[in-house]
Structure formats: structure tokens, C-alpha cells
Design a protein around this nucleic acid. Structure first.
Length: 258
DNA sequence: ATGGTGGTCAAACCA
């Protein structure tokens, strides 16, 4: 079984790329983030005729998470839809959708963007991660994958120039500690062992030819529970998907299970 | 400190 995650930065504007990606890599389950549409706006006919079922949660033009599966999709659950108190048009959205696909629990995650250190969104991000971790502890003994855009670069080598991020989110100790918490609980970054070397990125900003210069960040991850991780035989980042006209700013991340 | 590009939806906000 082959599972992928991709921050697609608008599903409608990239539906052709999504369909080609699924076909090119023979994907069974695809977790999407930043779908940027209400469910009724989504162009699903081609995907349905290709045999994919769909679970979606998105209430505005921003964000939105989805799961596509051609190996079944059961017990769909929307996670963390609302954390009151921020009075923010973005925060009330659901940022996680989970389903059991082919016997594996997959959570498509869009971890909040903290914007600036100490911005209310930054604190919201940390709080959201703490709540996710609490829930994820309960899933550790089942085959579970927490996949998606974590908006955290866990190591210095996960950004193109750590000095350039001195005052930025994504690399602060509290964010990294939040990410490490999942590892401490037993989740495993199942892709990194298959992508050796520093500066192996999943995201490159659209500006200033960051992709062409490989000035990127590694912020998209597949964290597997032990019973998931032990089934992973391969993983890779589809860097080619970031190239050319009409690319998302994120590349898909793919894992193979036995 | 700002601005660079791209998406949504047609001004301003988000990444």
C-alpha cells in the first residue's frame, strides 16, 4: 500500500496535477492540505471515476484538509475544529481529518501557521499541537500515521539557512519541543531514513526562485506509530512535482507499506 | 523592515 501527503495549495487550481500524481505514482491513499474550497466546489468526478473515495473538511477559502482513498475510507472523524478565544477567522477551521484506509488510520494534518513568534496564532499553534499530542497518545498502539504540513522544521538542517530564521517561527524551541513530543511518545519519522543527507526539503517559497536555488524547508512529515512504522519499506519526496509552471509550493511525500 | 509570488475572489488576507 502506498500513502502520500501533499499540501496542494488549492485543489481546484491543481486538480490536473493531483490526478497525474496519483496515476504516476500509483497512490492508494492521499492526504491533502490547503485544499482552499468548500466541499461542493471540489472537482471530484475524475477522482471518483479513478476509484477514489473522498473525505473532506473545509469551511472557507483557506486551509481545508482531505483524504482520498481507493482502499476504503471508514470512520471519518474531523479533529480540533474549534479552539475558542482567538476571535480569528482562520483558527475556527478544522485542521485534521482522520479515516481508516486499508486497515491503517491516517490523519491529514494542517498544523496552524504561527505567523510571528508571540503572535496569537503562534500560541494557538502550540496549543493545537498539545491537543493533537494528547489525542495521538491514545492511538500509539494502533497502526496510525500522522501526515501533513507540520509547519515545523525540527532540525537546523531542515531549513536552507538557519541564520535566516533567527527570529522566525517554524524553528523556535517550543515548536521543536512540540514536534519532539510526538517522537517521545513513540511516533517515528518514517521518511527521513529513506532521504539521507541535509537540506532535503519538502517546501520552497514561491518568491525569489527559492526552488531553483534549493532554498527550502522540510516541514511535511509522515509520523508513524510503531506498528505503522515497522511496515514502512520505502519513502521519498516527489521533488519533481514542485518543478515547472503551476506547481504547489510543497512537494508530496510518499511512503510504501509492505 | 520590507518585498518578493501565488491562491481566493474580486479588496484584502493568507501562506
Amino acid at each position: 500500500m502506498r500513502i502520500a501527503t501533499w499540501n496542494v495549495n488549492s485543489l481546484r487550481s491543481r486538480i490536473d496535477r493531483v490526478e497525474r500524481f496519483l496515476e504516476r505514482h500509483d497512490i492508494d491513499v492521499l492526504a491533502l492540505q490547503e485544499t482552499k474550497a468548500r466541499e461542493e466546489q471540489l472537482p471530484l468526478m475524475g477522482l471518483q471515476s479513478a476509484g477514489y473515495e473522498f473525505a473532506y473538511s473545509g469551511t472557507s477559502q483557506w486551509n481545508g484538509v482531505a483524504l482520498l482513498s481507493r482502499v476504503g475510507i471508514e470512520d471519518v472523524e474531523v479533529g480540533f475544529p474549534e479552539m475558542p478565544g482567538y476571535g480569528d477567522p482562520v483558527a475556527p477551521e478544522a485542521r485534521a481529518i482522520g479515516a481508516t484506509c486499508g486497515g491503517v488510520r491516517v490523519w491529514s494534518l494542517y498544523v496552524p501557521n504561527g505567523r510571528k513568534v508571540d503572535d496569537p496564532h503562534y500560541h494557538y499553534k502550540l496549543e493545537w499541537l498539545a491537543r493533537l499530542r494528547e489525542a495521538a497518545r491514545g492511538w500509539i498502539d494502533t497502526p496510525t500515521a500522522l501526515v501533513g504540513d507540520w509547519n515545523i522544521a525540527p532540525r537546523d538542517e531542515d531549513v536552507y539557512d538557519i541564520a535566516a530564521f533567527a527570529k522566525d517561527t517554524h524553528v523556535t524551541p517550543p515548536e521543536r519541543a512540540a514536534f519532539q513530543g510526538f517522537l517521545d511518545d513513540g511516533y517515528v519519522d518514517v521518511v527521513r531514513p529513506h532521504t539521507p543527507g541535509p537540506e532535503v526539503f519538502t517546501y520552497w517559497d514561491y518568491y525569489r526562485q527559492r526552488f531553483e536555488r534549493n532554498r527550502g524547508m522540510r516541514i511535511d512529515f509522515v509520523l508513524g506509530s510503531p506498528s505503522f512504522a515497522e511496515r514502512v519499506v520505502h519513502g521519498f519526496i516527489d521533488r519533481e512535482e514542485r518543478a515547472g509552471q503551476g506547481a504547489s509550493d510543497h512537494a508530496p511525500v510518499v511512503v510504501d507499506l509492505d
